[in-house]
Amino acid sequence: MSDDTEMVQRGVGILTATLSWESDDPAATQMFKESLRALVRLDDGLSVSVSGGSPEQTELLREVLPQVVREVIEALAPDYTRLLLGMAAGFKTVADAYRRDVPDADIEGILQAAALHLAQGE
């Protein structure tokens, strides 16, 4: 499975979890935020290509840049977590309204079909 497909499937999983999330429950909201933070991957296999400069400069950049990238990702993670939380809250609002208007709506089934479609696309 490609990393792209895996991340999309994780997104579908978040939407599925969102269906049972109660935003007025602080513990559930905190758990939901933690699950979103877990999506931020800090890949130890980060590769850096450097051209030009001395061999010493190249080696120093190879040592320093992965840590800088990790720090940037960690700094941006809270913003992306809030963004995803907002998107999930919006999805939940739409899903709840759909369930009110269409009592036999199978939103979970729709999301499950989307996940299966993604898996078959690999």
Results as ranks from 00 to 15, higher is better:
Met1Gly: 14
Ser2Arg: 03
Asp4His: 15
Val8Ile: 15
Gly11Ile: 01
Gly13Pro: 06
Gly13Leu: 08
Ala17Met: 12
Ala17Glu: 12
Ala17Leu: 14
Thr18Arg: 13
Ser20Ala: 13
Glu22Met: 03
Glu22His: 11
Glu22Gly: 05
Ser23Trp: 08
Asp24Thr: 13
Asp24Ser: 13
Asp25Arg: 11
Pro26Cys: 03
Ala27Val: 14
Gln30Ile: 04
Met31Gly: 12
Phe32Gln: 06
Phe32His: 09
Lys33Arg: 10
Glu34Ser: 15
Ser35Ile: 04
Arg37Met: 13
Ala38Cys: 12
Ala38Trp: 13
Ala38Lys: 15
Ala38His: 15
Ala38Ile: 10
Leu39Pro: 02
Leu39Lys: 06
Val40Ala: 09
Val40Cys: 06
Leu42Cys: 05
Asp44Pro: 03
Gly45Ile: 04
Gly45Leu: 05
Leu46Phe: 10
Leu46Cys: 09
Val48Ala: 05
Val48Asp: 10
Gly53Met: 04
Glu56Cys: 00
Glu56His: 00
Glu56Met: 02
Thr58Ile: 10
Leu60Pro: 00
Leu60Met: 07
Leu61Phe: 06
Leu61Ile: 10
Glu63Thr: 11
Val64Ser: 05
Leu65Asp: 00
Leu65Met: 05
Val68Asp: 04
Val69Lys: 02
Arg70Thr: 01
Arg70Pro: 00
Arg70Met: 01
Glu71Arg: 13
Glu71His: 10
Val72Phe: 06
Ala75Cys: 14
Leu76Gln: 08
Pro78Asn: 05
Pro78Thr: 04
Pro78His: 03
Asp79Asn: 09
Tyr80Ser: 03
Thr81Met: 08
Leu83Lys: 03
Leu84Gln: 09
Met87Trp: 01
Ala88Asn: 04
Ala89Lys: 12
Gly90Trp: 08
Gly90Ala: 09
Gly90Phe: 07
Phe91Met: 03
Phe91Ile: 02
Lys92Glu: 08
Lys92Phe: 04
Lys92Tyr: 05
Lys92Leu: 04
Lys92Ser: 06
Asp96Pro: 01
Asp96Asn: 02
Ala97Asn: 11
Tyr98Asp: 10
Tyr98Trp: 12
Arg99Glu: 12
Arg99Tyr: 09
Arg99Phe: 07
Arg100Cys: 08
Arg100Trp: 04
Asp101Val: 07
Asp101Trp: 14
Val102Glu: 11
Asp104Phe: 07
Ala105Cys: 08
Ala105Val: 10
Ala105Arg: 08
Asp106Asn: 15
Asp106Lys: 13
Ile107Phe: 12
Glu108Gln: 11
Leu111Tyr: 01
Leu111Gln: 02
Leu111Pro: 03
Ala113Thr: 03
Ala114Leu: 14
Ala115Met: 11
His117Asn: 13
Leu118His: 00
Leu118Phe: 02
Ala119Thr: 15
Ala119Phe: 15
Gln120Trp: 13
Gln120Ser: 15
Gly121Thr: 14
Glu122Cys: 04
